[in-house]
Nucleic acid binder design. Structure first.
Lengths: 178, 178
DNA sequence: CGAATCATGTAAAATGTTACATGATTTC
DNA sequence: GAAATCATGTAACATTTTACATGATTCG
């Protein structure tokens, strides 16, 4: 079952957001465990509005010269839908990792390419780790102010540990296949 | 880009296999980083045979009373295609983890459901860990005999450590949100 | 014999990505 | 004023899952 609407509802719980802002948040903060594309987000927002789960929040900006962006606001019905999903059983995870696939299918003949892939993967993981630490530093001071920051920090904490594991693993494998 | 054919070619490198056997291996041993369904595998095998990447290996079984299964065998052309893919850059990983999505989007109002999800996820991870250890024990003694077992063990090692990380994380979060 | 599992395959539906179009606003 | 980015959206394409059909073989 498609989950796009729950992702959007979940993010709209805390804050009124536009389609573009929703996409940004998903890309920047959730991409290590979830992805959505514009082709999913915009049409789904339309359907959700039709179904009465969200409505357009008229941005009453003081400076009327600013362009009026379409921000969406969750409705009581939307909150109910989100709650119902939270209670449902989870489906199996979907993962597709090309580096692990290549490693699994490689033989001693592919050592040179695999070393290159591992080095790149390690570098990407190091970049990601930096971003996670930054994000963590932003959220930690606010943990008592928002009633979802604790949960986000749990997930972020897993992301950090997982990314560190990947870095360590890359180093070990690189040392081993030298 | 679709990777189905490389998965199949990679597995056929080591051994002649039928579509059914390929699916089994992917499900049992690779599912923590890759998935394929029958709807992908069978038509793809047909196209690969057309393209000359694989061919049907006539099973010369001694006992002719046994049903003749269609096993595929990789060709030189198939090996070339596989090698070319091994050298290519990797695309970004795709991950969709519903437990992490729910955790990220949950608030203090969802504590009861999240505890339930965490307990279940932890149990599933423990089961998976057992299977990984079993598979590892099967492969380790054969590491020198097959020139791909070393690589499979690297991936399996990551799977084991990652699964342990998930279990630890579940315990910590469960203790924290008590 | 009946149930389970082996085994192959396809069609339809669902899901997801990509590329493009369009135009506003900001920044240098 | 040019380039970058903000912002919204869609159509076409690509991928993936699901459900079903069909029949063989194995095991108790």
């Amino acid at each position: 079952m498609k989950k796009t609407r729950y992702v959007l509802l979940g993010l709209l719980q805390e804050e009124n957001l536009s389609g573009y802002e929703l996409k940004k948040i998903i890309d920047l903060r959730m991409s290590f465990f979830w992805q959505e594309s514009y082709g999913q987000i915009y049409p789904e927002l339309g359907r959700m509005a039709e179904d009465g789960l969200i409505e357009i929040s008229t941005t009453k900006s003081q400076n009327t010269n600013k362009r009026e962006r379409v921000k969406y606001k969750i409705t009581a019905k939307g909150e109910g839908e989100l709650k119902a999903w939270m209670e449902q059983e989870n489906e199996k995870d979907t993962v597709r990792s090309e580096i692990l696939l290549k490693m699994y299918l490689s033989t001693s003949k592919n050592t040179v390419e695999m070393r290159r892939h591992l080095i790149k993967f390690k570098e990407q993981s190091e970049e990601k780790l930096k971003l996670f630490h930054l994000f963590e530093a932003q959220l930690k001071p606010l943990i008592e102010l928002h009633n979802n920051h604790r949960q986000i920090l749990y997930v972020l904490n897993l992301g950090i540990r997982q990314t560190k594991l990947y870095i360590d693993w890359c180093e070990e494998v690189l040392a081993d296949i030298k």
